[in-house]
C-alpha cells in the first residue's frame, strides 16, 4: 500500500467503518441504559424531579468549596483538558471544514496559532493527568488497563494532529493518514469504554439531581 493509498483508505472505508461502529455503538449503549427503565416512586414528593435533574446537569460543573480544596488538581486539570479538547476538535478551521462536509453547516474557527497552543497545553495537561493517575494512591488503586487505553487513544489524535500540522518526521500524507487513523481508533473504542461518559454524564447527573430533587434537596 502506497502512502496515498493508505491516506485514501483511512479517509474512505476506514472512516466509514469507524463511523458506523461509533454511531451504532453509542445508540446501543444508550438503549441498554434506557430499556432498563426505573420504578415509579410512590413516596409523596417534596420537590420536582425534573427541575432537580436539570439543575444537577449544570450545578455539577461548579464543585462545592470543600471538594474544590480536596480535589483541586483533578478539577483544574479536568477542566483544562476538556475545554482544550473541545477547542482543538471543534474550533480548528480544517476540522470545521471537515464537519461542514459531513453535516452541511459550519461555524467560526479560532485563529490557528491559538488552537496550536491549546493543543500543546492539552497534551501537557493530559501528561500531568497520567502522572497523577500513576502516583496518587487512590487513583493508582482505582486504575484499570482500560484507563490507560482510554488515555492513549485520547492523547494520540492530539499528538498526531500536532505532528501533521507542523509536518514533523514523515511526509505530509502519511502524517495526515496517521492522524485520521488515530481518530478512528478513538471512535471505535468510544462505545465500549468509559469514553461513553461524554454522553451518559447528562443522564447520570439528571438521575442524581432528580432523586435528590424529589426529596427537596439540591444536589
Amino acid at each position: 500500500m502506497t502512502e496515498l493509498e493508505f491516506l485514501s483508505w483511512v479517509r474512505g472505508p476506514g472512516f466509514q467503518i469507524a463511523t458506523v461502529i461509533f454511531v451504532f455503538g453509542i445508540i446501543v449503549r444508550l438503549l441498554e441504559i434506557f430499556l432498563l427503565g426505573r420504578k415509579a416512586n410512590l413516596a409523596e414528593a417534596n420537590g420536582s424531579e425534573m427541575s432537580g435533574g436539570m439543575r444537577a446537569i449544570f450545578s455539577r460543573m461548579a464543585p462545592e468549596s470543600d471538594t474544590m480544596k480536596r480535589s483541586m488538581f483533578t478539577i483544574v486539570a479536568g477542566y483544562i483538558f476538556h475545554i482544550g479538547l473541545f477547542i482543538v476538535i471543534f474550533l480548528f478551521a480544517p476540522h470545521i471544514l471537515f464537519f461542514s462536509d459531513v453535516i452541511g453547516f459550519s461555524w467560526g474557527a479560532l485563529p490557528t496559532p491559538v488552537v496550536d497552543m491549546t493543543s500543546v497545553i492539552t497534551m501537557i495537561t493530559l501528561a500531568a493527568v497520567l502522572l497523577h493517575r500513576i502516583k496518587d494512591p487512590v487513583m493508582k488503586y482505582l486504575t484499570k488497563t482500560q484507563d490507560y487505553l482510554v488515555w492513549l487513544v485520547t492523547f494520540l489524535p492530539l499528538l498526531t494532529g500536532y505532528l501533521a500540522f507542523h509536518r514533523v518526521g514523515l511526509p505530509a500524507p502519511s502524517l495526515l493518514a496517521l492522524h485520521i487513523l488515530s481518530v478512528e481508533l478513538l471512535m471505535v473504542l468510544f462505545p465500549f469504554t468509559k469514553l461513553m461518559h461524554a454522553f451518559t454524564f447528562v443522564l447520570s447527573r439528571w438521575y442524581n439531581g432528580a432523586i435528590s430533587g424529589y426529596k427537596g434537596v439540591r444536589s
Partner: peptide
C-alpha cells in the same frame, strides 16, 4: 437491582477518585 440510573452511573464513571475525598472513611 439494576435499573436505568444504575446503568447510567456505571457507564459514566471515569475513575477520577473524587468520591474518595468526600468519604470520611477514606479521608
Amino acid at each position: 437491582q439494576i435499573d436505568a440510573p444504575v446503568a447510567s452511573f456505571l457507564s459514566s464513571c471515569v475513575h477520577c477518585g473524587m468520591c474518595a475525598q468526600a468519604c470520611l472513611f477514606h479521608t
